[in-house]
């Protein structure tokens, strides 16, 4: 599932495979702005069926944190 999620992030951000890993910090990724963040949260919900609650979704700083809040 983590692999799938990374794939989905890379797809949403139009990045090459391998750019994103568990240690990636959101602010370090070019293009991962607030809009992109919403799209990623939306894609995780619609494509993977994982709903990250609103309160937690706005407040994520790294991919590791994203995994944690998604419970994967």
């Amino acid at each position: 599932m983590r692999e799938k999620m990374i794939g989905l992030i890379e797809k949403t951000l139009n990045l090459a495979h391998g750019v994103i890993n568990e240690d990636t910090k959101i602010e370090e990724v070019p293009g991962w702005d607030s809009l992109a963040h919403v799209l990623i949260i939306g894609a995780i919900e619609s494509d993977l069926g994982i709903s990250i609650p609103l309160d937690e979704a706005v407040d994520i700083a790294s991919v590791g944190e994203l995994f944690e809040k998604a419970g994967v």
């Binding site: 607030s34 809009l35 799209l39 939306g42 919900e45 619609s46 494509d47 709903s51 609103l54």
Partner: peptide
């Protein structure tokens, strides 16, 4: 529609 995306960023429509 996606309610969560609406609250997060005034994005009304779902990805599809």
């Amino acid at each position: 529609f996606s309610r969560k995306m609406w609250y997060m960023g005034k994005i009304l429509y779902s990805a599809v």
